Amino acid sequence: MASTYEAAVTSGPIIEAKGLGVKFAVNRRRKRSLREMFIHGSKRDPNAEGSEFWPLRDVSFDVAKGDCVGIVGKNGTGKSTLLKMIAGVLIPDEGKVSVHGKVAPLLELRAGFNDNLTGRENVYLVGSLHGMPEKEIDARFDEIVDFAEIKPKFIDTPIRHYSSGMKVRLGFALISQLEHPIMLVDEVLAVGDKAFKRKSYEAIDRMLANDRTMVLVSHNEKDLRRFCNRGLYIKGGTLALDTDIDSALAAYNEDTRVEIEERKKKDAAKKKRAEEAEKKLEAEQRAATSDSAEGKPVDSAEKPEGGSADKPDGKDGGQAA
């Protein structure tokens, strides 16, 4: 029987990424964002003078229907940036990403909510933005609130007063109600108590059992191994490895171990140089103190010309005034 990972190769992809690259400005989030394009129109790019770097470049992969792909890598390597390009909220500067199906994104702790709106208003707003009819939201509203464990007195409170955990729970409860075939999840499973995590895990299991596709960014190896059959290891802004999740995690952990060992060696060498410099300074200070206590011999150059002033010449001293 073919494994799920083999099925990803033999079946048609639901996500296709070809040569993806994105360029950021050092002095701001991005050289040219959608917001800036809307505000400034055809005017000169306000960030054009800033230096640039590529957090991701030349990244290519396919994801098959029903796969759960974990994106692995250390902080700052472009994992969340990649999810945003798949979701369509960030435009790549190079390459192309094609998504064959609706996407249910849960990319940040705010879950796309408006802080000035109440929990109820946000559910209807975000749900409608994802294509849920108002009647469907009405029918599922109580289930969403119960799943999120939001008390009735808070559901009509502006969510700026919510904790990050409350926002994530409400966002996950809403997104999990969508029938979209693709879910994008970025670290949000790390928030919540054990009981809520258990409910979230069960919900994800149900969605994956229904042949839905998920791309998951997480530093929790248990979550990655539980859900993902495949791993993309992002290293240095490029796709270093596309394989099963265990192999991806093993490569990432080995690189991390080597990096930690190198850092320890550098720190030890730096500490040794500092100790040697301190010992040298202490030795110089002791030598200076010793010389001061013993007294230095008077330099002959400091004596008055013609001999000592304390001993007058005998002949001169014997002459009469």
Rank of each mutant, 00 (worst) to 15 (best):
S3V: 03
T4G: 06
A7R: 12
A8Y: 00
V9D: 06
V9C: 11
G12W: 03
G12E: 14
P13A: 05
P13F: 02
L20F: 02
K23T: 11
K23W: 07
N27F: 05
R28T: 10
R30I: 13
K31P: 01
R32G: 07
R32A: 11
S33C: 05
L34Y: 06
R35T: 11
M37V: 14
I39Q: 15
R44P: 07
R44D: 15
D45K: 06
E49L: 10
S51V: 12
F53E: 12
D58F: 10
F61H: 00
D62E: 12
A64Q: 03
G66I: 06
I71V: 10
I71L: 04
G73R: 00
K74M: 11
K74L: 11
K74H: 13
N75S: 15
G76E: 11
K79P: 00
L82Y: 00
L83Q: 06
K84M: 05
K84N: 07
G88Y: 04
G88R: 05
G88Q: 05
P92Q: 03
D93F: 01
S98V: 14
P105M: 09
F113A: 01
F113C: 03
N114Y: 08
D115F: 11
G119F: 09
Y124S: 04
L125K: 05
L125D: 07
V126T: 09
L129T: 12
G131C: 11
E134A: 12
E134I: 08
D138S: 09
D138G: 08
R140M: 07
F141V: 04
D142A: 14
D142T: 10
D142F: 03
D146R: 11
F147K: 01
A148E: 02
I150Y: 00
F154T: 00
F154V: 01
T157M: 15
I159F: 05
M166K: 02
S176Q: 12
E179S: 09
E179D: 14
P181T: 09
I182Q: 04
V188R: 02
V188P: 03
V188H: 03
D193L: 04
A195M: 12
K197S: 12
R198G: 07
A203H: 01
I204V: 15
A209K: 10
D211H: 08
R212M: 14
T213N: 02
M214P: 00
V217T: 03
H219Y: 04
K222M: 13
K222A: 15
F227V: 01
C228L: 07
G231D: 01
L232T: 02
K235Q: 14
K235Y: 13
G237M: 03
G237R: 01
T238I: 14
A240P: 00
A240S: 06
D242S: 11
D246M: 03
D246F: 04
A248P: 02
A251S: 10
Y252F: 06
E254N: 13
T256N: 11
T256Q: 11
K265Q: 14
D267N: 15
A268F: 05
K270Y: 06
K272P: 08
R273C: 07
E276L: 14
L281N: 09
E282V: 11
S290P: 02
S292C: 12
A293Y: 07
A293P: 05
G295Y: 02
K296P: 01
V298W: 10
D299V: 07
A301D: 14
E305V: 09
G307W: 02
S308E: 09
A309E: 12
P312G: 06
D313M: 09
G314V: 15
K315N: 05
D316Y: 09
A321P: 07
